[in-house]
Design a protein around this nucleic acid. Structure first.
Length: 105
DNA sequence: ACTTTGACTATAA
DNA sequence: GTTATAGCCAAAG
């Protein structure tokens, strides 16, 4: 287990309800600005040992739910977001810039 | 050990 | 707005 993954999980768990962040923001917070893919990959690995991570609050830079196919059902991610008050349209989070949460704060 | 793939991002056309 | 390309790093085949 690398420190990188642990930090990723720690940050994701810190994401407030009703807020979202991006892979790139997390990577940048960890000092690995060019390793956004690793964040997504860490999420993919996360479910096999720590499923409690709210991965639905992590989206790509455009606010798109790129990882929805990795959930139990392709619609679960959107449903979880909507359950927290986040509006999703066409796989994209509405008002994404305002809902965005900076993990470094 | 080598190749492919991927929950990404930035840039260019 | 889209598509293409390249850079990035780690896991899986």
């Amino acid at each position: 287990m690398n420190e990188f993954y642990l930090k990723v999980y720690e940050i994701v768990r810190k994401i407030p309800k009703g807020r979202v962040t991006t892979y790139g923001a997390i990577a940048q917070c960890l000092g690995a600005n060019r390793s956004a893919r690793l964040v997504g990959y860490a999420m993919n690995l996360s479910h096999q040992f720590d499923p409690t991570i709210p991965a639905h609050r992590v989206v790509n830079k455009n606010g798109l739910l790129t990882g929805k196919h990795h959930f139990s059902t392709p619609t679960q991610m959107q449903e979880l977001l909507e359950a927290e008050g986040i509006q999703v349209k066409n796989n994209q989070i509405k008002n994404f810039e305002k809902l965005f949460w900076n993990p470094c704060e």
